[in-house]
Amino acid sequence: MTEQTLGSCAGCGIAIQTEDAKKPGYAPESALGRKVVICQRCYRIKHYNEVAPVGMGDDDFLKILDGIGSTQSLVVMVVDIFDFQGSWLRGLPRFVGKNPILLVGNKVDLLPKNINLNRVRNWMQHEAKERGLRPEDIVLISAQKGLHIDELLNRIGELRKGRDVYIVGVTNVGKSTMINRILHDYGAAELEITTSPFPGTTLDKIEIPLEDGRSIYDTPGIINRDQIGHMVSPADLRKITPKSRINSKVYQLEAGQTLFLGGLARIDFVRGSKQPFVVYVDNDLYIHRTKLEKADEVMEKHHGTLLVPPTGEEAAKALPPFVKHSFKVTQSQMSTDIVISGLGWVTIQGKYEANVVVHAPKGVSVGMRRGLI
């Protein structure tokens, strides 16, 4: 039996093969008689929460997305609201051509309970415009909780106008979870797509037929390597990935104080009046406050032990060296977020000026934006 006749893995989309267990797409011949066939890698992710590296690079993923512009399709771009900057798919117009785009903000269930969702939509509209994207509409959902899936399906139905639908986004934004939610809610649960917190789970396009002869395509996630999650172990990635609604933590800081976000980032309040720093990170992430003059000593002595994650001194040594990012927050009527890609953000209210220095591993994107909350 040749690879061409075996079809594709229902979990990640890769072509099934039975010849080499070390290559992507391997499944034992005994699995081929099942109604839904998944590769060994997907089986181990699903049942044992294990992840195995595959020999696919960024170019392989980009080639899969490159053909979208030549199709007549609706493109649904999914972003992680909690990590908007880190989950933004850069260069999207190059892939989609003239096709319309529906922007979906996933993981709305992680935001504080009292947040105004219309404000979040307006904020996303502003941020998208700043990045050169003008979506047809914005829908906020929680794929994990099943929130607002009906609204999403209605907008897809209105905007696609009989065309195929391509779901795109970077790794770990919840594309496959979103599609699984649609499949479960609308009667095709046996087609479940493999999901995990690890990047690169979907390896090829996965086609889901629609009643009118068209299809929804789940595409592989592009890896944004400036997210901090790509620099930590799978165990530590789970520790910094929010699993429930974020509870903000407020620190009244004076100039000359430092906050450590675990052992993954450090925020120095260098100059300014006493003011609140509001931290939005995973609820279980350890935050340590100290004097700026002692920060270097604390880092050297406790990185990987008190300051975790990274968990363990070896994991701490494996991180790239920290680099400094300096910011001046001017007095304003609006709040400002300082964002550390893949970890979270700190909000400064704007009532006072502030000079802030953020230390983060080299390669991690750190920047300022208009306050989300």
Rank of each mutant, 00 (worst) to 15 (best):
N106Q: 10
E130G: 04
L111C: 12
L89A: 03
N116H: 10
G86T: 07
L103G: 00
V75M: 03
L74W: 00
S87T: 13
G91E: 11
G132C: 12
I68F: 07
D109T: 10
V108C: 12
N122E: 15
G67Q: 15
W123R: 02
E136L: 11
V120I: 14
L89R: 04
G67Y: 15
P93T: 15
N114V: 14
L74N: 00
L92D: 08
L140R: 02
V96I: 09
R94P: 11
Q72T: 08
K98C: 06
R134D: 11
F95P: 06
G86K: 02
Q85W: 10
Q85Y: 11
R119P: 03
V120G: 05
G86F: 02
L140V: 08
I101R: 00
G91I: 08
A143T: 06
R134T: 13
K129I: 04
Q72S: 09
R134Y: 06
W123L: 09
R121S: 06
F95G: 04
G86W: 01
H126K: 08
W88C: 00
V104S: 02
P112L: 14
K107T: 13
K129Q: 08
L111H: 09
G69E: 11
V104W: 03
S70E: 12
E127F: 00
V75E: 04
L111T: 11
A128P: 04
M124Y: 01
W88M: 01
D137K: 07
V76T: 07
E136P: 04
D83W: 14
S73H: 01
L89T: 07
P93H: 15
V96W: 00
G69V: 10
P135C: 04
V79G: 03
G69T: 12
L140M: 10
N122S: 14
T71M: 06
K113V: 15
P100Y: 02
I81A: 08
I68K: 02
E130M: 14
L117T: 13
I138H: 05
R94Y: 15
V76K: 01
Q72C: 03
F95W: 14
F82I: 13
P112M: 14
R90M: 08
S70A: 13
E127N: 05
L89H: 08
V78R: 00
F84H: 05
K98E: 14
I138L: 11
D80M: 14
G97K: 02
S70Y: 10
D137C: 10
L133G: 08
P112N: 14
G67H: 15
L103Y: 00
A143H: 06
L117Y: 03
G69A: 12
G86Q: 03
G69Y: 09
V104G: 02
D109V: 09
R134H: 09
F84E: 05
S73P: 01
K113Y: 15
D80F: 12
S142L: 10
G97Y: 02
I101Q: 01
P100C: 05
V78K: 00
K129G: 01
Q72M: 02
D66Y: 15
V108K: 07
M77Q: 13
L133T: 11
Q125G: 06
